[in-house]
Nucleic acid binder design. Sequence first.
RNA 1: GGAGAGGUUCCCGAGCGGCCAAAGGGAACAGACUGUAAAUCUGUCGUCAGACGACUUCGGAGGUUCGAAUCCCCCCCUCUCCA
Length: 402
Amino acid sequence: MKFEHELKVIRKGVEEIIPEEELIKKLEKSEKTGKPLRIKYGIDPTGYDVHIGHLVPIRKMREFQDLGHTGVIIIGDFTAQIGDPTGRDESRPPLNAEMVKSNSEKYMEQLFTVLDASKTEVRLQSEWFGKMGMMDVLKLMGKFTLAQFMAHDTFRNRYEQGLPLGMHEIMYPILQGYDSVAIESDVELGATEQKFNILCGRDMQRIYGMEQQIAVLSPILLGTDGIQKMGKSMNNYIAVFDTPNDKFGKVMSIPDALILNYFNYATKLDPDEIEKIKKELATGINPMIYKKMLAREIVKLYHGEEAGMEAQSAFEKVFSNKELPDDIPEITMTDDKIKMIRLLVDNQLCASNSEAKRMIMQNAVTVDGEKWSDVEGDLQITDGLVIKVGKRKYLQIKKDQG
RNA sequence: GGAGAGGUUCCCGAGCGGCCAAAGGGAACAGACUGUAAAUCUGUCGUCAGACGACUUCGGAGGUUCGAAUCCCCCCCUCUCCA
């Protein structure tokens, strides 16, 4: 069959393609005309912390790019004012132009760790929505009925549960859908929860008499807690900006049952190889071995091979062998002694005096490996002392004689 | 516009005049253990103060009371039903 290779690449790690037959037609057409397909993905510039869950569809975009197609990233400066109803982020501070600009720049910087910049277009929603007036908006809204929206889980559930549902929120899928018209997308990427919004884009294109886009839906990546989807509000995410050591550690903290899932969706590993790992894990082997490999693979993706190895040895050093890490934050002190509690709070090892005391009482504080138990005590400062709080917080003191 | 329900500590959610810094669960953190920042168990979880005690907190502003998250008044917000 024609396009067998392309389809195999596109299908990999994808939950659903709607409709697949049309995608084949589009591929054919693209080949015939030599015109690359336009692959859309939208982001809301409400913040800029990108986590590896976001990158599942982005990696898919890269694969499209490698097949010669064009990625189009939409900066949702209008939808950001609404907040994706499926995302359920509470606070929506109004965004001004500078914030949009700086957020999206930082956002793109992270996406370009994956994307091919030469085949990426970045577009702002305000390019088209900024020109619209009330009449245009009414016309857009008239294309859909309330029943269509209430048939959608997110809206219906919130309505039925008696939760607030703003009128403007139903505009979200409409705006996102119109984006597809504006940029004439052939394919829109997103996680499965985006199905409704992306299909809205299809409807919108049909209404405007255009060729309709294909939805290519990625699975939702679970967070490090293994229960909820990875998200900023849940504090269960691995960020692109996390240090290699943090990425490694966070991967090590996922439940064992999640290992294969992450291999599938958060790494570039070949499916055959993942199949092998699956079999290995089923033999009852210590999952840690493969979790380390997973962590290494993920670090590698963003920081390179060497960083992956380094993060692993740092992890083993600190957690398996309980040695000191290489990069301990340092402070320089001139005094001969300091109250321990103050030292901990002043250097952000603890959030408050009370917490510092609690930590001491819970045997969480050590000085050069020795437990510190005197809640009120002073620390005699000597050069090179290492303070450790809990499992992960360190501080080294440099004594300035001067 | 009318009638009713509600807004509690990071989240969910109990409390409805003193025994409430506020049950319970989740998250988080710590300790033990371990094969991992897995799992499990135990503990901690407003701030300040030598665990006594003090101060700030229960949508917002007032009031009643020796004393309020709990009662009253006004305001803001959410939900349901009626029009």
